[in-house]
């Protein structure tokens, strides 16, 4: 069973996402929540980090957090999934554990 990683910090302010993606094992899931969702947007300086990681791990964004910040799913890098709270809970259940990168 793989790990579900959550990242709640902006990639432009903290290195939480960078560390998470460095250590996440192939096949793991990474869920971007709160200010972490900014990492999922197109055309930012974080794109190379995300593009590289998408070859090894699945990346998701929590929809309500993205919407709160004014961005639609169309603004996300292709390959990133959008989940709601119910799906977040389901993912937490499906994975062996949840690891938060605060």
């Amino acid at each position: 069973m793989s790990i579900l990683h959550t990242v709640n910090k902006s990639p432009f302010e903290r290195n939480s996402l960078e560390s998470c993606l460095k250590f996440a094992a192939p096949g793991a899931a990474v869920l971007l929540i709160e200010d972490g969702v900014y990492a999922g947007l197109r055309d930012t300086t974080a794109v190379p980090l995300i593009a590289d990681a998408l070859e090894r791990v699945k990346i998701y964004v929590l929809g309500p957090d993205l919407k709160a910040r004014g961005f639609a799913a169309e603004r996300l890098i292709p390959g990133i999934g959008v989940v709601d709270y119910a799906q977040f809970v389901a993912m937490a259940v499906e994975h062996a554990k949840v690891q938060a990168w605060l």
Partner: peptide, 23 residues
């Protein structure tokens, strides 16, 4: 500046996160 520019992003809708949309 920096992440502060996100404060002015238009279309903010906080109905899904239970916080006040102050934009």
């Amino acid at each position: 500046m920096d992440d502060g520019v996100y404060q002015l992003a238009k279309g903010q809708d906080t109905s899904g996160i239970g916080m006040k949309n102050f934009s």
